[in-house]
Structures are given as C-alpha cells and as structure tokens.
Design a protein around this nucleic acid. Structure first.
Lengths: 233, 233
DNA sequence: AAAAGCCATATTTTCGAAAATCATACCGTT
DNA sequence: AACGGTATGATTTTCGAAAATATGGCTTTT
C-alpha cells in the first residue's frame, strides 16, 4: 500500500529528458516562464527535479523549436517576443497551413471527415462551459489544437506537419501573452464552424480564405492587446 | 613551440556540443554515416572524443532538424531515407523556396544583387576546376549552398530561412546519396546562371519557375540513380 | 518444436562533481 | 573621475561513473 499516489517521476515509457522537454514546452507556451526570462540551471533543477545534463538536452530540443534561445557559453533563456517575430510566425503559418488545408481537402477520406467533425464537436462542448475565458481552460487548449490538427491531418506530409506544429506552438504562446489583456474573445466558435463546413464540403478556396482570415485576425488581436509587451525589450 | 599544430578541441568561442553538432551534421549529409545506421555512444565517443552527455545533446539537436532519428530508450540512428521522405522534402522545399525567392526579388537591395552575383561567380570558378565531380569538392558544396542562400537572403523572415536551411540539408544528403551512381552532372551551371539573371532582372515569375524546375529535377535525378537505395529498408 | 520465463550482457540514460567560462566588484593608475 | 586590469564569485559546460533499460541466449514448460 505504500506505492499509492506516488506520482511517477516520468511518464511511462518515456525518457526523463523527453518528459522535461514536454513540461518545459507547455510552461513556455502558457507564459508561466516569461519571454526573455533567463533559464538558470539552479532554478530549473529545483523546479523540474532533473540534473544539469538532462535539462540541457531538453533546452537544446526547445531551442530547435524556436521556444528557447541558446546563447553560447551564456546559458539559455525563454525566446523573446517581438512584433517582427509575430509577423514572421503568422506569415509562415499562413503559407504552410493554407497549403496543408488544400492537400487535406483533396486527399481526406471518411476518417478525416469524422476527425474534423468530432474534434469540432468536442471543442464546442468545452466552450459552452466557460464561454468567457476559453484560453484559461487546459482542456479547451487541447481541443482547439486537436481541431486544427485534424483539419490538416490528411495532407500526407509528415515533414510539413512537423513544421506546422512548431509554428502553431509559437503562435499559441502569443495568444497566451495577450489573453490577460483581451477584453473578450471574438466569435471563434462561428469561425471554426465555418471552416469545418468549407472543409467537409470540399470547398478548398473558401476554406483557405477562412483559415487565412482566422490566423491573421488572431495575430492582429495579439498585436492590438499585447502591443505594449512586444516593443519593450 | 610545443603548441604548434595542436588541433584545438573545439572551434573558438563555441561549446563542444555545438562543434560536435556541426561535425555530425556534415558527416550525415555527406553520407559518411549511412542512412539508418545506428549511432552508438561507444563508437561516437571514440570518433568525436566527447562524453555521453555532450553527444546526446548534439544528437537531440540533429533529431529536431530531421537528420537523426531518436528512438526512446533505444538510442539514436541516422535518419532513414525513403522515396516518401524524398518527395516530402522536395515538395516542402518548393513551397518555401518559391515564396522566399518572390519576397527576395521584391525586397532585395543593391547588396542583395551583389551577393547573388558574387556567390554565383565563385561557384562557377570552382566548377571549372573539376567539372565532372563537383559534389566531391567541399568548396563546391559550400559555394553552391551560399549561392542558393544568397538568392533568398533578402526575404526578411529569419523564421522561414531557418526552416529552409533544414530542408536544404536534408535534400543535400539525398544528392550525396546518388552522387556515386550518377553518370555525369547535367548542366547545373547553366541553370544557376539563368536563375541569377531572372532574379537580378526582377522577373519573379520566371525565377520561381526556374527554381522549381531546378529543385524537382535534382530530386528526380536522385530517385532515378539512387532508387535502389530508397526502397531497401 | 514453439512459447514463455529468466538470467547475463550490452547499451542507453541519468546524475552530481569538477572544469571551464563568464560577470562583477575591487583596486591601482593616470 | 575615468580607465584598465585582476581577483572573486556565479553560472554554464563537460565528464565518466552509476543506474536504468533493452537485447539476446538459455532453460524450462507445454
């Protein structure tokens, strides 16, 4: 009976390094670690309970994803934010997401349609619980991510999906950055619904147009409500 | 006088991990480490003279670039090659490179033009030395990379340039893979010249068309002459 | 003979100490 | 006071031993 409720030191089957990478990623995206903040090993060691080298491995991986900034011989810090970076991430997302939506609409089968519909359904359910502050709900975040993931999942390119995933994470961090200052969410539910319908009805041009507007308006909102955080560096 | 000719254990100002990452990357691209080959720490330790954890950090970084395949609890191996992966890399390169060429042509200033012209000039000079086997010449590889880099350097997006660089490396590995079986290089010099002229004369449509043909014909050549290496896995 | 369990060995993964490097404060000189 | 150099403490980076995990062969059982 002694082993009840002992939290496992890592997820099953994973290395500690992979687990730390995951936890650090989530924390950076959620801005629990502020942009530009130095990531000192003493602090991380205490917070995550891992050794120097394991942490170093995790930070190296996150640096490749663009969430951490590695400064040779001077340690790591959370990747800074800036208007320029926000614009770059947004443009890159549009370029790639538009292409992947087209390919998915062209290639998607029944399973794809089901995935799109069901992930949207779950997202709506969760939104009904707390319509005011969806971003604060971890489940909403997951469901939102999964819906967008489902939309492009039939594109057929693991390579582009991996790139897309990294950009999505970087964009999500910006959303979190502005979440505390944004008066109230716009009608995302309606936008998601429209995107889903365009995709399922195989109207690629419309779906692409809606997705681009969706991405850009999210980005514009960040620039509008978190602008003061993007300039001061 | 005792310190003459002692090779420094690392490049100036860099960490050992960054140095090892660089050397491993070059070796994988050049197929000195074969696709799919297991990367055991004993062997790497001897070959690169670094410790477990330093090597691990390098391998983690290369895994994020798609040159190394990390298998949880079962070590690392050189990323395998396949027809599917070649197609994905090629398509992704076309998508991104086309966009970056357009942006560079639109935004490039005098310095950009000079960089394009001078990197092409150097490339041609090197090609004259050994017109038969350019890929075996390390200087040609560098010059070739720099010419293509110069073409897109004015695009204004560090984010997309970083993605492009990773894809370029992955594609270059496939070129090396087929280099030993390819009878003789096609007229790359002429293609590069035409691309340069289209770019400098700000003919975006033509430049894009030429770049896409350039990338795809290179990929087709790999599939043609290294096909036997892409299926057997 | 095939499958399942078990042990021994090979290999990866993690750790904290030690070395290397950087940042800062101090001191002497101009 | 300003500057340059140097010592000191803080922090990162590297290392090889030790722990954890996987692999392959051997034995036993069905």
């Amino acid at each position: 009976m002694s082993d009840i409720a002992i939290r496992p030191r890592k997820e099953f089957g994973k290395t500690i390094a992979a687990d730390i990478t995951h936890r650090l990623r989530e924390e950076i995206i959620a801005c629990g670690l502020a942009p530009g903040e130095p990531l000192r090993f003493d602090v991380l060691r205490e917070r995550f309970g891992a050794s120097f080298t394991t942490l170093r491995e995790a930070l190296t991986a996150l640096a490749a994803e663009g969430l951490v900034d590695a400064q040779e011989q001077r340690g790591f810090r959370v990747a800074p934010v800036s208007r320029q970076d926000l614009v770059e991430v947004t443009d890159a997302r549009v370029l790639i997401e538009v292409e992947l939506i087209r390919r998915s609409i062209e290639r998607g089968d029944d399973d794809w349609e089901i995935a799109v519909i069901s992930t949207l359904h779950r997202l709506k359910r969760i939104e009904q619980r707390d319509p005011e502050h969806p971003l604060r709900d971890p489940e909403w975040k997951i469901a939102h991510r999964q819906f967008h993931q489902a939309l492009v999942s039939a594109c057929g390119s693991a390579t582009l999906l991996a790139i897309r995933a990294d950009l999505f994470d970087r964009a999500e961090r910006y959303r979190h950055l502005s979440a505390n200052f944004r008066p109230r969410p716009r009608d995302k539910a309606g936008e998601h619904q429209a995107i889903m319908q365009a995709a399922i009805s195989r109207n690629a041009d419309l779906a692409v147009q809606l997705i681009e507007a969706h991405i850009r308006s999210t980005s514009d909102n960040v620039a509008k409500y978190a602008g003061h955080l993007l300039d001061a560096e």
